[in-house]
Write a protein that binds this DNA or RNA. Structure first.
Length: 462
RNA sequence: GGCCGAAUGGCAGAGUGGCCAUGCACCGGAUUGCAAAUCCGUUUACCGCGGUUCGACUCCGCGUUCGGCCUCCA
């Protein structure tokens, strides 16, 4: 029985799909004006794991993640660069796709772009005006009338009266209520714009998602996800827009990922502790980053620090070492007590940490079987890999993983093999002084040796 | 100020009303020419104060501390 934490009720609840066996899932994607950072990576990986697991559990999942490709920041950045908006966004969309592939994040089934849904957006704004939930202001903007939507604040348990006191919103005299938010922004001279009944302009951020969810998934769908900073106001506003315009329940379950901090501080550009995915991937193999993000529960806050990556690497090394030197079979049945534990963990609001603990228990068992030269080792290791694959992990060949990539200035595989051969000869001659000298030399070069009956193996340590 | 979440062993991080989390690190043993890897074993814990209970880290209340959101933000 799948249970998940619903932000709407702020509790863990049993999951029931609208249509048996099918799940329609929408996740708020990126605004593409810069490279994705480690916080984006968390959302990508979290919902990738969730989607993979739901499919493993037998659901047919329609996964939609949008791209916001028109927005103030994009316009500003493009102007600074002296390039066209679409040129800028194409560049960063391509970069985002590269980052995703590196992190082994599967492509969403649909990746709608705001600029490709202008008609739907304008239609929805018009509907909201027609129904009295929106109004065109004197400056050409169109605003949502929050006072008209009785349950505004339901997702984050806020009341408009309570918020007025410490409001940090712009005082803007064209709005009826300071919390009214913009649906359509009148264009300033020279900005990209689209024609509308209220004049040339562009959509507000919130309406894009309401329009795209409607296009891709319909008025009412199962799960809506996003990052930790989206419940208010973004998702609150989506609910207000979609339910007012469509006249029916918008979403059954709201899932939100936890925040990523950096060295115990909030990640922000002003603190200069902002890490892009590509910066991290330049220093660490992508699977280690994915492991780090998967080894914590998706809702928990995590701290990104160098030490955490080093530890993630040690942990992942252990799993790959267990699989090493075995002939793994691809089509092994996963059925058994480990799968049951794994599924039970994942059914409990996607408890990946507990699921990974199952993998480590399997690794210990595999190592025992290997020690006893038991033929069951390969089968169990294959099952372990199969479970890891459900999380998008353990997809590499163990030797390829352990040997790693030669970085700049590192010894090549061939050079290492030559030294290892030289050492083997020294060992055979019981020339341990030379043998140890070569081993030390390799260690200094970041290569660790492991002797075994079958000969010496090596791996790179970053 | 409002809403929400968290406080677990050296670190990271799950979980449960009474019994092993798991990983990293540490210590002892096995194995090894010595290592590495691996196995076996030991040690270290549940923020404070009340309450419920035969029994609470686990439930309830209060307090303290920390964090997220309340403005664009994953």
């Amino acid at each position: 029985m799948l249970q998940l934490h619903n932000t709407l009720t702020n509790s863990k609840v049993p999951f029931t799909p609208i249509e048996p066996g099918k799940i329609r899932l929408y996740v708020c994607g990126m605004t593409v004006y810069d490279y994705c950072h480690i916080g984006h990576a968390r959302v990508m990986v979290s919902f990738d794991v969730i989607t993979r697991y739901l499919r493993h559990a037998g659901y047919e999942v329609e996964y939609v993640r949008n791209i916001t490709d028109v927005d103030d920041k994009i316009i500003k950045r493009a102007a600074e660069n002296g390039e066209a908006c679409d040129q800028l966004t194409e560049r960063f969309i391509a970069a985002m796709h590269e980052d995703e592939r590196a992190l082994n994040v599967l492509k969403p089934d649909q990746e709608p772009r705001a600029t490709a849904h202008m008609e739907a957006i304008v239609d929805m704004v018009q509907t909201l005006i027609d129904k009295g939930f929106a109004y065109a202001a004197s400056n050409g903007d169109v605003y949502y009338r929050v006072d008209k939507f009785a349950t505004y604040g339901q997702l984050t348990n806020r009341k408009l009266e309570g918020m007025r006191a410490g409001a940090r919103v712009d005082v803007n005299d064209v709005k009826e209520n300071p919390f009214d938010f913009v649906l359509w922004k009148a264009a300033k001279a020279g900005e990209v714009s689209w024609a509308s009944p209220w004049g040339d302009g562009r959509p507000g951020w919130h309406i894009e998602c309401s329009a795209m969810t409607k296009c891709c998934l319909g008025n009412h769908f199962d799960i809506h996800g996003g990052g930790p900073d989206l419940p208010f106001p973004h998702h609150e506003n989506e609910i207000a827009q979609s339910e007012a315009a469509n006249g029916e329940t918008f979403v059954n379950y709201w899932l939100h990922a936890g925040a990523v901090r950096v060295n115990k501080e909030k990640m922000s550009k002003s603190l200069g502790n902002f890490f892009t995915i590509r910066e991290v991937l330049a220093k660490y193999p992508a699977e280690i980053v994915r492991y780090l993000l998967t080894a914590s529960h998706y809702r928990s806050q995590i701290d990104y620090a160098e030490g955490a990556l080093v530890e993630a690497q040690s942990a992942l090394d252990r799993l790959y070492t267990a699989m090493d030197q075995l002939t793994l079979v691809a089509d092994v049945s996963l059925a058994g007590p480990h799968l049951e534990r794994f599924n039970a963990a994942m059914d409990d609001d996607f408890n990946t940490r507990e699921a990974i603990a199952v993998l480590f228990d399997m690794a210990r068992e595999v190592n025992r079987l290997k020690r006893d030269a038991d033929a069951g080792a390969a089968k169990l290791a294959s099952q372990m890999r199969g479970l890891g694959n459900i999380l998008g992990l353990l997809e590499m060949d163990p030797q390829t993983y352990l040997k790693g990539q030669a970085g700049e200035g590192d010894l090549s595989d061939a050079a290492i093999d030559a030294l290892v051969a030289q050492r083997n000869e020294a060992k055979t001659n019981r020339d341990f002084a030379l043998s140890d000298q070569i081993r030390d030399q390799l260690k200094d070069a970041g290569v660790v040796l492991e002797d075994s009956k079958e000969g010496a193996r090596w791996k790179r340590e970053s």
